[in-house]
């Protein structure tokens, strides 16, 4: 799973979000490192919808403009959990090997 995809799914893990909300969440989760642009975001959202990992939660009109909220599907939640566990296991293994070198505490 690509980092942007992982971060988008993470942004939706605790509730539905609209496009701008996802961009802001992803920026916050990544500590400002990843700033999604609209083109990248909507290509990823389209892909995730086709793959059945997210779905449209609701639509609103705010100041005359469409705002569409997305949420994780059960399959999306499952995939995110599996990916998070995989990354955690890899990180744990890396940290365990780095510890004797004194690089990490």
């Amino acid at each position: 799973m690509q980092e942007a995809t992982f971060l988008i799914l993470t942004a939706l893990a605790d509730g539905s979000q609209h496009g701008y909300g996802i961009i802001a969440e992803v920026q916050e989760i990544s500590g400002g490192r990843v700033r999604l642009r609209a083109g990248t975001l909507y290509t990823a959202l389209d892909r995730l919808r086709v793959d059945g990992l997210i779905e449209v939660d609701r639509e609103e009109i705010v100041e005359g403009r469409l705002r569409r909220y997305y949420r994780l599907t059960p399959e999306g939640t499952e995939r995110l959990a599996a990916e998070a566990a995989r990354l955690q296991a890899n990180a744990r293994a890396a940290l365990a090997r780095l510890k004797p070198l004194g690089v990490v505490t």
């Binding site: 496009g19 701008y20 961009i23 609209a38 975001l41 909507y42 389209d46 705010v62 403009r65 469409l66 705002r67 569409r68």
Partner: peptide
């Protein structure tokens, strides 16, 4: 399906 929504995000960012 998406132009108005993307436009809203582009203008907001």
């Amino acid at each position: 399906a998406n132009e108005e929504e993307i436009l809203a995000v582009l203008l907001a960012t």
